[in-house]
Simulated scan of single mutants.
Amino acid sequence: MFIVLLICGGLVGFYLLMWVTVLQQPKCKSTAKLYGRTVIVTGANTGIGKATALDLAKRGARVILACRDERRAQAAVTDIQRESGNKEVLYMHLDLASLKSVRSFAENFLKKESRLDILINNADFLFGGKTEDGFGRIFGVNHTR
């Protein structure tokens, strides 16, 4: 009986912790429209980046998914276009572990786009190693770009 009560207490405690820390967090209540605005979201093919890109697309922005994996990014573009109804969502290759890729992305962006209104630096890297430029990968991807 004691073990059952302990388990039930633990489950109730876990639920309350989740309620306070996750479920009751403030949500964005803005209804601002972003028609005519151009936005870059790095790492936008999954997770928070994809959710952010979707919200921006729903608001009418031209959204550029700056990602390193073309296959996953194109799948995200398709999903976001379908869910938002916005066809102004596109992919541009960007590998933040390479200064060459960063420079190439910037050059291509400046050739194709007339403006940048919002930049959301979402991409990050959690595993070790080195970038092709010799930086620690975590530092190089998360801080030097």
Score class of each variant (00 low, 15 high):
residue 65 L to A: 03
residue 62 R to V: 05
residue 62 R to E: 13
residue 106 A to R: 12
residue 40 I to L: 01
residue 119 L to K: 09
residue 94 L to H: 09
residue 47 G to K: 03
residue 50 K to T: 03
residue 47 G to M: 12
residue 50 K to W: 03
residue 63 V to L: 10
residue 66 A to L: 08
residue 84 S to W: 11
residue 128 G to Q: 08
residue 60 G to Q: 07
residue 79 D to N: 12
residue 104 S to Q: 14
residue 40 I to K: 05
residue 123 A to R: 07
residue 128 G to C: 08
residue 87 K to R: 13
residue 123 A to K: 03
residue 97 A to C: 02
residue 101 S to L: 05
residue 113 E to S: 12
residue 51 A to G: 14
residue 69 D to I: 07
residue 123 A to C: 02
residue 115 R to K: 14
residue 111 K to N: 03
residue 119 L to H: 06
residue 81 Q to W: 07
residue 88 E to D: 15
residue 129 G to M: 06
residue 87 K to F: 01
residue 108 N to C: 04
residue 52 T to H: 03
residue 66 A to Y: 04
residue 84 S to N: 10
residue 83 E to G: 02
residue 65 L to Q: 07
residue 90 L to H: 04
residue 113 E to M: 11
residue 97 A to Q: 01
residue 90 L to Q: 08
residue 46 T to N: 07
residue 53 A to H: 13
residue 128 G to Y: 05
residue 48 I to Y: 01
residue 103 R to V: 09
residue 104 S to V: 11
residue 104 S to A: 13
residue 81 Q to E: 15
residue 48 I to A: 07
residue 65 L to G: 01
residue 99 L to Q: 15
residue 106 A to S: 14
residue 84 S to F: 10
residue 86 N to M: 08
residue 74 Q to N: 12
residue 74 Q to C: 03
residue 40 I to Y: 01
residue 86 N to E: 02
residue 102 V to K: 10
residue 74 Q to D: 06
residue 100 K to W: 02
residue 59 R to A: 15
residue 86 N to V: 08
residue 49 G to C: 12
residue 62 R to I: 04
residue 111 K to H: 05
residue 67 C to Y: 01
residue 120 I to M: 13
residue 63 V to R: 08
residue 71 R to H: 14
residue 102 V to A: 15
residue 118 I to F: 05
residue 110 L to Y: 02
residue 69 D to R: 12
residue 96 L to P: 01
residue 97 A to D: 02
residue 79 D to W: 05
residue 48 I to T: 05
residue 78 T to G: 05
residue 47 G to P: 08
residue 89 V to N: 02
residue 40 I to R: 04
residue 111 K to G: 00
residue 108 N to Q: 13
residue 51 A to M: 13
residue 83 E to R: 14
residue 73 A to E: 01
residue 92 M to E: 04
residue 113 E to V: 00
residue 59 R to V: 09
residue 94 L to Y: 08
residue 119 L to A: 09
residue 73 A to Y: 06
residue 115 R to A: 14
residue 128 G to D: 12
residue 71 R to E: 13
residue 128 G to L: 07
residue 127 F to N: 05
residue 41 V to R: 01
residue 115 R to L: 03
residue 62 R to P: 00
residue 65 L to E: 02
residue 46 T to K: 14
residue 112 K to T: 10
residue 40 I to Q: 01
residue 55 D to G: 10
residue 68 R to F: 08
residue 64 I to C: 04
residue 58 K to A: 03
residue 107 E to Y: 12
residue 107 E to K: 15
residue 119 L to F: 13
residue 56 L to W: 10
residue 113 E to T: 06
residue 63 V to N: 07
residue 84 S to Q: 11
residue 109 F to D: 00
residue 96 L to Y: 04
residue 113 E to Y: 03
residue 122 N to E: 04
residue 83 E to P: 00
